[in-house]
């Protein structure tokens, strides 16, 4: 697996560029990752990213869009507005987590 430099820090990523080690992520890295996929982070984005980070800690897997709505309290419609076209994958990428596994 490649090691790349993001925001001045060496991080492990998979072949697509998703971070593979939970503890290597920080908020500065998130900002750079977001910028790379043309997203400017606002408070609304941070609310989701922080939820994903916390939820991963307890669940051991990345929350799906459905879970971000039902547990995280951010409606699917807003997720699409904040992370256009592919919210689940974009949210996971910026939060330094693997792509969600669930189908729904």
């Amino acid at each position: 697996m490649p090691v790349i430099e993001v925001a001045g820090k060496q991080v492990n990523v998979n072949e697509e560029g998703f971070l593979t080690k939970y503890d290597e992520w920080n908020e500065e890295i998130a900002k750079v990752l977001a910028k790379q996929i043309d997203i400017e982070l606002t408070d609304a984005h941070w609310k989701i990213i922080k939820f994903l980070r916390e939820d991963f800690k307890t669940e051991g897997e990345t929350a799906t869009s459905r879970r971000v709505q039902t547990v995280g309290g951010v409606p699917v419609k807003d997720q699409f507005a904040l992370f256009p076209k592919k919210p689940a994958k974009k949210m996971a990428y910026i939060a330094g987590l693997p792509k969600p596994k669930g189908c729904v």
Partner: peptide, 12 residues
């Protein structure tokens, strides 16, 4: 210098 690896989320 390490290369950037950015996922391809497809064209908008």
């Amino acid at each position: 210098m390490t290369p950037e690896i950015v996922p391809n989320f497809g064209s908008e």
